[in-house]
């Protein structure tokens, strides 16, 4: 089995990351923003696994597990806020959150 070059893994991870980043910036629906955040975090996880396998170390996979834990915790907090948003404003649009001005 031929080895996948590290650069290719990274280019793929960066493409995924950019897709997630554009999602966070361009999407107005907060649920999709949370999903895009997941895409970004998973892209980073992929990069870590690629890097770990290139060095034949377990460190990359350890970091991936930590990232998974973070993603779960973040989504839990995010969804709780999402429910509060729905209750308070009856919509999930991020543009509804524009009251904090001077």
């Amino acid at each position: 089995m031929s080895q996948i070059p590290l650069n290719h893994v990274f280019i793929f991870a960066i493409i995924l990351f950019v897709i997630g980043f554009i999602g966070v910036i361009a999407r107005r629906n907060t649920l999709f923003m949370l999903m895009s955040l997941e895409v970004m975090l998973n892209a980073v996880g992929l990069a870590f696994i690629g890097a770990g396998s290139a060095w034949v170390e377990a460190d990359g996979q350890v970091m991936f597990i930590l990232i998974l834990t973070l993603a779960a915790a973040e989504v839990a907090v995010g969804l709780a806020l999402l429910i509060r948003l729905q209750q308070q404003r009856q919509c999930l649009d991020i543009d509804a959150l524009n009251e904090l001005r001077e």
Binding site: L6, M40, G50, G52, A54, G60, L70
Partner: peptide
């Protein structure tokens, strides 16, 4: 902050690689 964390993590992944 989640966006910032993932940017930070991507940087870490690159440095590690």
């Amino acid at each position: 902050s989640a966006t910032a964390s993932s940017i930070l993590l991507l940087g870490m992944a690159m440095l590690y690689a």
